[in-house]
Amino acid sequence: MINNIVINIEGLTKTYDKSTAVDEISFTVNEGEVFALLGPNGAGKTTTVEIIECLKTPDKGKVEVFGIDLKDKKKQNDVKRRIGVMPQNFNAFDWLTVKENLEYFRELYSSKVSTDELIDRVGLRKKMNSMYKTLSGGTKQRVGIAISLINEPELLFLDEPTAGLDPQARRETWNLIRELKEQGKTIFLTTHYMEEAQELSDRILIIIEGKIVAGGSPNELIENYGGNKSVILKNCNKKILEDRGIKYETDTENQIQIIFDNNEQLFNILSAVTNDPNVEIEIKKPNLDEVFLNLTGRRINAEGLAK
């Protein structure tokens, strides 16, 4: 299958005053995929998406959206009509209701989309007549997604769509994003939540200090950078392992960790302990946290800070 390239970035650089926020990055986004830019605070995610959204002017590099070069300012309006954007820390008009906000933006696009249908689609029926300023954070984000769909965009940008939401609201937003993907929209996501990137994306680009450090599908990233899989055994007699020549590390007094590469090795380990009912077995697969840790020597906490 030949992928249609929706976004093509080459050598993109953006400098504020003295600090370089985005440093010579290149990547492409394909039609129909959920693409995630993953990185800690200040990595340059927002700067990158806002350049693609025609909100910022790059210092250097080529940016093409739908094959249109954004250097041509006159053509930017053609791009704007075909994209939907939910900026980071999105806000709409405080003194308009949810429905009025949607109608406002619909008129800006002269769009024919039915606001009522959209309201149902994102689950805002109960809140549609509430003033935007009275909504909870989660509902506001939801309104943001609804507004970004008002012009039936082919390409949707969501900059940290679940930042600050509780787990329940986050799951709901994730489901909504999955539905949008099923409808064939290309989704460009930025996030500092490992889990979010892993759950939703087809392809992830890890960006740190304005540079891309790794990229690929979640599985490829884990495969390439996640490190080894391991079996953790509790209450295990070390002698059984030594008899079979299995190398192990003692994690804590009562806990043993054995690194393995393939299923054959795993089977060997498991058969060694299979007759001892006291042994507790846990198989550990690395996730994006490990990928990030291995790439940077740091972890990202819930606030998006790399430590």
């Binding site: 994209i83 954007v85 820390n89 696009y109 507004i147």
Partner: peptide, 13 residues
């Protein structure tokens, strides 16, 4: 400050 201008700037307005 609250990002409404930014959102508006992504539309044809």
């Amino acid at each position: 400050k609250n990002g409404v201008i930014k959102k508006l700037a992504t539309t044809p307005l």
